[in-house]
């Protein structure tokens, strides 16, 4: 009988490689590098013994994070993976509130893509400092609620939060836009020196704003509109801090 398969007798095909396998392996490798970098970063920060949110500590931690990330080639997908990893981390990767947020912010500032979207709805943690020092030309979309200090020291970037923001939103921002689709917490715009902060819902309390513009809904709440031309001349050139009780609220 004719063997109809004879032509294939000596076939020895190479093991099939799916492109997806290669992509997953590559992403696993990058994630390992990022986790290792994060661990180095945490160890460096641990030497400071007590982590205090003050300008010097922030700058130092951010610089360390940037140094750690310098040799890692990662994409925006890796940023999301890293968030997920830190959100569920225990033991090996220690999630620390502020340093973790700064590390993610540094990743957002140094990834190749200009538009970054992070889906935070599925995360249990609320990372602070997301959007920290986001430079001009970059857009960060944060889906869901965010923690404190969102958009801190914003440097021309565009941050959009689709949920609520915590306290100190836009703290010290210099330029750029911070858009919060729902409400923000206390001290919103604290130390703000420029840029535009828009809160579609309620602002629990404005901080000590220096410059820039803050909107609550459609209404500009900083600088507050002058009551009359005659009285405005007698005021100090520094805009007066607007307290929540003086602002006409718009319920969202």
């Amino acid at each position: 009988m004719v063997n109809p398969f004879q032509a294939f007798r000596h076939y020895a095909g190479a093991r099939r490689e799916l492109p997806l396998d290669r992509i997953i392996a590559q992403r696993d490798h990058v994630l390992q590098q990022l986790l290792q970098g994060y661990q180095t970063f945490v160890e460096e920060e641990s030497r400071q013994l007590v982590w205090v949110v003050e300008q010097g500590a922030l700058s130092r931690a951010y610089t360390t994070a940037v140094d750690v990330l310098q040799d890692i080639h990662f994409t925006v997908e890796d940023v999301e993976d890293m968030c997920t990893e830190l959100d569920g981390a225990s033991g090996a990767t220690t999630p620390l509130g502020a340093p973790s947020g700064l590390f993610i912010a540094a990743m957002c500032n140094y990834t190749e893509e200009r538009d970054i979207t992070l889906n935070l709805r599925s995360m249990t943690r609320r990372w602070p400092f997301l959007g920290y020092r986001l430079p001009g030309g970059r857009r960060l979309f944060l889906e869901g609620d965010v923690g404190d200090f969102v958009g801190a020291l914003l440097e021309g970037g565009e941050v959009t939060v689709t949920g609520n923001a915590g306290n100190y939103a836009g703290i010290g921002m210099r330029s750029g836009t911070l858009q919060i689709d729902y409400s923000s917490g206390k001290n919103t715009g604290e130390g703000m020196r420029g840029g535009v902060l828009r809160v579609q819902g309620r602002i629990a309390e404005l901080g000590k704003v220096q410059q820039g513009a803050i909107f609550e809904g459609d209404q500009q709440v900083f600088p507050a509109a002058p009551e009359s031309p005659t009285t405005s001349g007698s005021k100090s050139s520094r805009p007066e801090r607007v307290r929540p009780e003086t602002v006409q609220r718009k319920t969202s």
Binding site: N3, F5, Y11
Partner: peptide
């Protein structure tokens, strides 16, 4: 492709 050709190859050995 790979699986089909592998199956044909094994069939050749089977039949032979």
């Amino acid at each position: 492709q790979h699986d089909v050709m592998q199956a044909l190859s094994l069939a050749a050995h089977c039949l032979e």
